[in-house]
Design a protein around this nucleic acid. Structure first.
Length: 114
RNA sequence: GAAGAAAGGCGGGUAAUCGCAAAGGUUUUAAGCCUUUGAGGAAAGUCCGAACUCCAUAGGGCAGUGCGCCGGGGAAAGCCCGGUCUCUGAAAGGAGAAGGAAAGUGCCACAGAAAAUAUACCGCCCCGAUGUUAAUCGGGGUAAGGGUGAAAAGGUGGGGUAAGAGCCCACCGCUUCGAUGGCGACAUCGGAGGCAUGGUAAACCCCGCACGGAGCAAGGCCAAAUAGGGAAGCGUACGAGGGUGGCCCGCCCCAUGCUUCCGGGUAGGCUGCUUGCGGUAUCGGGCAACCGAUAUCCCAGAGGAAUGAUUACCCGAGACAGAAUUCGGCUUACAGCCUUUCUUCCACU
RNA sequence: GUCCCCAUCGUCUAGCCCGGCCUAGGACACCGCCCUUUCACGGCGGCGACAGGGGUUCAAAUCCCCUUGGGGACG
């Protein structure tokens, strides 16, 4: 894993909490849910069976984790994040996910300044 | 050299930087640092078989399911190896759920005379009657030919006959008896019979063999909140109830009372969890599957789930694909490459 | 992960157990014609499917095996 275990969402209840109470950001290949007001910073990753078989799903999760690991300091504290993949992410590359996440971070910063 | 067949193996490599998981060591509150290890031949499908765990002791019967040539291997298997037979290919080879249809039952559409106690549509032949003939009618013989069908009651050839027919003969097939070889399936040879026994058992079924059920989300331990009960022992009574087997018998539990004890259990956590019918090498036995001996090694163990990213170079430019309790198989997917053996054809010596 | 179930026209289904009459029936939908001034209703006709591959059999939607695609239970 390219991201420490302490920084990951683990329980199904936590995921459901983010889905139901959190906000949503649509990018090209990703849908990012986030819920603020928490005491720590956690990340969760979800890849549907519709994307492909186990090898492909694992690869996408690893790519996402790597991007988050590199940019972990750019994410605001006290927020839980969940990354979902869209169906078109089947053929996406590392750079595609990277630009999506950069876009999300810029959007967050703008909101905070406003 | 070309085309092809079989068996076995490999499944990009090297380096740098940043990272992940486990184990060990170390400073030690957390955490950090160092070292080592870290997906497959199919990890897949979940199609068989086991180990392990629980269920009521896993017993008897019925039902049900699966398997089915012979010998060997294996813990077992819808498994493997060797052989037999049948089918198939020019050959090397390949394929086969391959017992029983002379125990019984069922089915065999359409077509056809007839689909299993055989029968007779067109025919062929004989006799009789009518008739010049042709032919028609009646009685009988026959199943060679035609036609139908997936399949027509041994096949081909000859003799024979009024026409025909295993009616007779030869060969082939079949049945049966014997001999020889083989552990055996079976094969070969010889004699006899004069043909009886259509197909279908991945139709019911018969014979033989095997099978109790569930599955690591099994099961065990610790244990918030909430709710108040739960467990053990003894005694009595009843088959009416309950207990996850498809059913029956058998088996186990018990309403309630008394005594003793404090535990049961959800969220959650820990465990089961990786040393095993283990791998590798050498030697020996065996055609082989496999077995034995010796030496040596420890080789993933997660739990929203670890192997990734970037860069550089090389080549033939990298397929199918990711462990989840563990093994033995089967099946399915798979770019390209290597090794060995064999078959056929062509060329040369 | 472990254990199960299902697959037939565009949609819902019958046939499968017990093979042949299946060139696979019906309803809704779609298309054309008739009826009506027109639409609807009604009538007639048409289009249209056995998930894929292999095996058993004379013959497979049906029996057997493999694959593919859906769905469910167990936290």
């Amino acid at each position: 894993m390219s991201l420490k275990k302490d920084l990951r969402l683990k329980k199904r209840a936590q995921f459901l909490n983010v889905y139901s109470k959190g906000k949503r950001f649509n990018a090209q290949y990703l849908v990012i849910y986030f819920l603020s007001g928490k005491e720590n910073k956690l990340f969760g990753f979800t890849v549907s069976r519709k994307i492909g078989k186990a090898v492909k799903r694992n690869r996408i999760k690893r790519l996402l984790r790597e991007i988050v690991r590199v940019n972990v300091d750019s994410f605001p504290d006290g927020v839980w994040y969940v990354f979902n993949t869209k169906k078109i992410a089947k053929n996406a590359e590392f750079k595609d996910f990277e630009s999506d996440i950069k876009k999300f971070l810029n959007w967050l910063n703008e909101k905070n300044f406003n």
